[in-house]
Write a protein that binds this DNA or RNA. Structure first.
Lengths: 114, 114
DNA sequence: TCATCATATAATAATACACTTATATAATCA
DNA sequence: TGATTATATAAGTGTATTATTATATGATGA
């Protein structure tokens, strides 16, 4: 039998995870751009450990994955996440957070390491 | 300017509210049926104050409304809720909880007062 | 009016959460 | 190799959350 859709318990846990302004915004941003911790620190004007701890929760849930590029670790949405469709449904209903990145760019604080 | 969609802060608060197994299931059930507290007490096999407190959170957020019918207070989704579309989007992605009500019915514990 | 049923509210206690500070790890670069 | 930069982790703290117990309110029906 093919498992389809999301169980309600799982959904509740996921919504709880996303039910935090910082994490939700992070995930929305990650839907369009890979980012590293130091960028989020700038964007949210908060401490590095606070960001790392949010990232860890997202990673533990399987929602984001990491890839090291030199000095930096870049995070991105994990397209293989079991309930990726559900997450996308949600994210599509949210307003773009693009301006947060363009602001970063403007300040010359966007990291790119191609 | 017409306000459209949901702000990310508001969305986070809403997801947090729904990020609880009991509340999420309640809301999913209420999408199809009005229910009263004592029914939820049966369905979730939990205490009456616990249910009342969950209901209050949903009511405070504007997500559900109440109407007294005799001895009982029936709760239902508030279709006028500001972000009702967003909530519906979410609920539609969740599996039916219909069996919880049919189970109630079978036990003769469904309240109806027409 | 009194007993009962449905629900709300208050007080409390246990747990979870998100931040802070301090420190560790890991890569880079002089 | 030693300094620097990026990130993770650990420990501690204040606050939020959720349940419990006890009590109050409000409607019904004998």
């Amino acid at each position: 039998m093919i498992k389809q859709g999301i169980e309600i318990e799982h959904a509740a846990a996921l919504l709880k995870l996303l039910g935090d302004k910082t994490r939700l915004t992070m995930v929305k941003i990650l839907a369009d751009h890979d980012c590293c911790v130091c960028e989020f620190v700038e964007i949210f004007d908060t401490s590095q450990p606070a960001i790392s701890q949010h990232i860890r929760k997202l990673k533990d849930a399987g929602l984001v994955k990491e890839s090291r590029r030199g000095q930096w670790i870049f995070y991105s949405l994990n397209q293989e996440y079991e309930q990726f469709d559900f997450v996308q449904l949600l994210l599509n209903a949210l307003p773009s957070q693009e301006e947060k990145l363009t602001e970063l760019e403007k300040q010359g604080k966007r990291i790119s390491c191609e």
